[in-house]
């Protein structure tokens, strides 16, 4: 499953970087996530609940932040396991200056699905995943405006 998209933030690259690297912020803004427990530097155990079309399940997994090049890029390497299927993948994040003085965050990745989530409705899943990621960024924007207000 390919995921790809971007979002613009009205803050500097460095500010965005610091928000993205804050586990408490991430836990707060990611839909469905109920636990984000650090297990080492840039490594977390996660528990999340997802409903995608006809299937819903509770995912347990690992999330690592890798390939960090502050403040311009990093990647999320993840493994999420559930009874309805598993997701393994890497999503690259690129932070760059946008024309209008804001900051652009572009994501691009390939997530391999297995089990029931692979068999049922995978043809629509890419769109759903992109939506979820965009939702994360929209929440982050809200969080930023609230915390800087």
């Amino acid at each position: 499953m390919l995921v790809k998209g971007n979002h613009e933030f009205n803050i500097s690259k460095e500010m965005l970087w610091s928000y993205l690297m804050d586990p408490e912020v991430l836990a707060k803004i990611t839909p469905g996530i109920s636990e984000l427990e650090p297990t080492g530097e840039d490594s977390y155990n996660t528990i999340s609940n997802m409903k995608i079309g006809p299937v819903k399940g509770s995912f347990k997994g690992k999330l690592n932040v890798i390939d960090k090049e502050e403040p311009s890029s990093f990647a999320i390497d993840m493994e999420q396991l559930s009874k309805i299927g598993n997701a393994h993948g890497k999503i690259s994040m690129k932070i760059s200056d946008a024309d209008n003085g804001s900051t652009n965050l572009a994501f691009n990745g390939d997530v391999k699905l297995s089990g029931m989530i692979a068999r049922m409705g995978q043809r629509v899943l890419s769109g759903v995943a992109n939506l979820i990621i965009k939702e994360v960024f929209a929440s982050l924007e809200t969080h930023i405006s609230e915390s800087t207000a």
Binding site: K112, L113, S114, A118, R119, M120, G121, Q122, R123
Partner: peptide, 14 residues
């Protein structure tokens, strides 16, 4: 099948 060998239309919805 996808490139990992998953049957991606294994239901009557798909």
């Amino acid at each position: 099948f996808d490139d990992t060998g998953q049957l991606i239309n294994g239901s009557y919805m798909d």
